[in-house]
Design a protein around this nucleic acid. Structure first.
Length: 311
RNA sequence: GGACGGGUGGCCGAGUGGCUAAAGGCAGCAGACUGUAAAUCUGCCGCCCCUUGCGGGCUACGGAGGUUCGAAUCCUCCCCCGUCCA
């Protein structure tokens, strides 16, 4: 049986994934499948660095603007829609190119998710309420009783993970570990080539700051203001880096200068976490530099031609 | 010129004689993370050594001296910074 080729580009924010993706898509007849947990939200365009209309005209993009800011979106949703998108691209005879900034979503797409129960809003609300009242260590003690193995692996301070673990045990009536052992539905039928962007750390940090300035110059604050009035503070994307600080500025809690400083700092921290995640991603061919550099693009093309021909 | 206030590890900042390599925060680094993941959490964080241990040595709280068994903490002089009075 023949495997369909699939290209994945991983790398930190502002590392040039989109630029490399566009380049490769145009050279190889590809379409881009975005793997980014923030770009699935409609209307939040500038601060999530969504591909522009012009770029989308050049190359077809998938998995952007999938839901309203007031709705929820999860790794499970991404898994299903992502695989559909991949299938569609391949069926059209095009090369799917996944540009991935969100490690969890990429793992869900490639490795699948074990058959854990989906979110249960009522149960979560109850658990959250208890955490607020008694502290997250209360949840940890609770988890230690119903699923000691999971409790050992989660910090008593980590309320979100404790809540998810408890949710799983209470809904499935089985501990997580048992469900994990049932395996996860990996993506089948593709020959995957993974390219990783590895720009020099301080150069990346400088570029992050420059990009944030560009976003502001492009009207990011105005966009935030408009969306804040329209969707309210509780919309999910106001929890994302950038929109969070700009919203705080709109509420008068911090100055614009403070917001910008914070955005730059937190984006650097985020980029570092992405490095940590992708570093252990298996079988990545790492390329030193930024994705918009001509030499790196040429190198990527060479490697892909070899890989795509080989499949 | 005078009067106060202040100079602490990359930054902010606590500490007024021993329990202090010095709280806490930030930055930085390393890591975890199977359904909110641009989220959430963990560890390290003066230097050197080793038998890697609640181990040893060195350096450190503007500078130089001094008091003391012992000083970031007290005294003297000096150098900077801030505010106020001339």
């Amino acid at each position: 049986m023949s495997l369909r080729p699939l290209v994945v580009i991983v790398g930190p924010t502002a590392g040039g994934k989109s630029a490399l993706g566009l380049f490769l898509a145009e050279k190889l007849g590809g379409e881009i499948v975005v793997c980014d947990s923030t770009q699935v939200y409609r209307h939040f365009d500038i601060g999530t660095a969504k591909p522009t209309a012009e770029e989308r005209k050049r190359v077809r993009h998938h998995l952007l603007d999938l839901c309203e800011p007031t709705e929820g979106f999860t790794a499970g949703d991404y898994l299903r829609l992502g695989r559909q998108a991949l299938g569609g691209v391949s069926r059209r005879g095009k090369l799917p190119i996944v540009t991935a900034g969100t490690g969890l979503y990429l793992r869900a797409l490639l490795e699948g998710l074990s058959p854990l129960p989906p979110r249960s809003p009522e149960l979560r609300a109850r658990l959250q309420e208890r955490a607020d009242r008694k502290g997250s260590s209360y949840l940890h003690r609770l988890l230690a009783r119903v699923d000691p193995q999971s409790a050992r692996g989660i910090s008593p301070q980590d309320a979100p993970k404790l809540i998810r673990a408890l949710e799983v045990v209470f809904v499935a009536r089985r501990p997580r570990g048992e469900l994990f052992r049932e395996g996860r539905p990996r993506l089948e039928g593709y020959s995957v080539t993974k390219l990783g962007l590895l720009p020099e750390r301080s150069a990346l940090y400088a570029r992050i700051e420059a990009r944030i300035e560009q976003m502001l110059a492009a009207g990011w604050l105005e966009e935030t203001k408009r969306l804040h009035e329209r969707f309210g503070d509780s919309a999910k994307p106001f929890g994302f880096i950038g929109y969070k600080q700009l919203a705080a500025q709109l509420r008068g809690e911090i100055s614009l200068a403070e917001a910008v400083t914070l955005i730059k700092q937190e984006t650097r921290n985020f980029a570092k976490r992405q490095f940590t995640w992708f570093r252990k991603e298996p079988e990545v061919e790492w390329l030193a530099g930024f994705g918009d550099a001509a030499t790196l693009q040429a190198e990527a093309l060479v490697r892909l031609r070899a890989a795509v021909r080989g499949s």
